[in-house]
Structure formats: structure tokens, C-alpha cells
Amino acid sequence: MGRYVIRRLLQFVPTVLGAMFVLHYLTSVAIQFTGNPVRAIFGDRTPPQSVLENLTRRLGLGDPCLEQPFNPCFSLFGKRLDAIFLHLDFGTDFNERAVTDIVAGALPHTARLTLIAILFELVVGIIVGVLAGLRNGGFWDYLVKVSTVLLIAVPVLVLGLLVRDFVNVKFGNVLRGVDGMPELISRGFFAPTWSSNHPWASLLMPGLVLGALSLATVARLTRASLLENVRADYVRTARAKGLASNRVVGVHTLRNSLIPVVTFLGTDLGALMGGAVVTEGIFSVPGIGRQVFAAIFTGETTVVIGIVTMLVLVYLIASLAVDMLYAVLDPRIRYD
């Protein structure tokens, strides 16, 4: 196990470097084609050449390779690696705010949002999946099958906008018109957009939207895997041992059925981070996703590279943790 973890940690190095180079190259090519993004700071005013050049150099975009289309700008990449790994300097945005500060400010929101989404999809997804699996062919099973297909078919963007307009705005407006309605509900859970007065409560709806797609997958996986396992020989043994059916399902069947769900969770973390960009945009949550989104528009390459690199790291660590969890759930898996 220890050796496996070390090997996986070593694999992080090429993965992170590769991801950074792809990011670096894409952002460089973007600058090479659209021109110096620093000009945007001045809006429609034309700054003196010397001022522009000074500022560009200070923001780390003075390298002449950025004017030659498709030049990979290796020296610039080297400088970036040197700053990040040797000086732990992730650079700044155009207002000279450190990327680390931006992340520190935005990360808690995204972490909360993702946490709500994961809890929602796991708790509800597993319960619903077990229910459908036990009632195979019955009403609940069909209800779950149909509703999960709907959830999977609707893109997060559409679902998010629908929920915001109909639940948070229209239904929320009704609630806000009711006398004596607690503010936590009317301006928290059903706030039209994220509100700093209710940093947790107003993340509920965005979290549910973000987790909805994965919830459908978790429910279907649990259902299929439970159905596969209820007829297993060891379940028959458990019944022959005179155990109550709660225990037969809840302990003997479920533990085996959750193995594919945990596998899914590993890949799902990546999807949640991607989904967070959209969800945060729709509900105006000032999280990581929104920062990346904004930075891409303004061409603040250091911000994009810094934040995405950190996301890559978070994803790698999380999937390593899931793989460890996998071995705990299924003792037949050996990492050596």
C-alpha cells in the first residue's frame, strides 16, 4: 500500500507538468492571435506605448514569443515553473492581486458547493437506488428509472437556468411576499442568486443543481449493482444464517453494491468541478469556477494557469483518496 501511494504521488509530477504545459500553450496561442490582453485594461483609451510596455512586462507578458503565432514559448514556461515551484509565486491578476489570494477567497464557496452536491448525490442517490432495486419492476422502480433518464438528458446549463428562474426567482418571489416567512427560507434557500448573508443556505439550490446529474448516475448504478447482488450466493447464505432482511440488504448486499458507486465517485469529482463553473455562473456564486471563467475572458493567463493547476492537484489527490477507499471497501483489491 505504502509503495503504491508513493508511486501514485510520483505520477502526479508528469500529470501536473503536462496539464500546465497544455494550459500554457493554449493561453499563449490565444494571446498570439488576439494580441496583448493588457490593452484591455485601458478600455477605449490608447495608453502611451511606454506605459503599456512597462505594464505588460510587469505582468509577465513581455516575452516577444507572444507575438509569434504557434510559438510554444518554452522560456516563458520555464519562468512560470521556476516562479511557481521554486518561489511558490503563482503570479497576479491585472490588478496585481495574488492568485493565491484569489483562490483563498473563492475556494470556500466552491468547496461548500461541491460538498452539498456530493452529499446530495450520495445520500439521495443511494437511497433512491436501493429503493428502486428492491422494488424491481414496481412503481417506484419505474419512477426512478424515468426521472433519472430525464436528469441525465437535461444539461446542467438548462437545468440550472430553469431552477433559478422558476424555483429561486418566481417561487422565491411568492415566498418573499408572505408575511412572517423566515428570512433563512425566503432569502436563503430560495434566494434568487447567491447571497453573502446566507453563505450556506443560498448554496443549497446551486448544490442540488450541480449534484443532480451525478445523482441520477449514482441512483442507476446503485440500482443495477444491487439487483446484480441480491441474487448472489452469499446473500442466500446470509438469509440461511437467519439474519433479518434489513441486515441482509443493508450490510451484506449493500457493501458489495457500493463498490461501483465509489469507482464512479472518483471520476465524478472532475465532472463536479467542471459543472461548478456553469453552476457558479448561473447563480453568481463567487467561487473558483467564476474566477476561472472571468480570467479566461480578460486573458489573465496567470490566473487561469494558477487556478487550474491547483484544481488538477485537488482532483489528483481526491482520486487517490477514492482509490484508497476502494481498497477498503473491496479487500480483494491489492495495491502492490
Binding site: A232, Y234, T237, A238, A240, K241, G242, R255, N256, R332
Partner: peptide
């Protein structure tokens, strides 16, 4: 009936590998 199982009447299955739960000791 559940109380009779294992207490009074017990059963040994054919294929012990699949009849034992793989994820518990």
C-alpha cells in the same frame, strides 16, 4: 422461521467462494 434457520436447521452450500461474502472477514 428466521429463528429456526442456523439455530435448528443449517445449510452448507456448494461453492464456498461465492457463498461467503467477499468483503467481510
Amino acid at each position: 422461521r428466521r429463528a429456526v434457520r442456523a439455530n435448528q436447521i443449517a445449510m452448507i452450500f456448494q461453492d464456498a467462494l461465492s457463498a461467503l461474502n467477499p468483503v467481510f472477514t
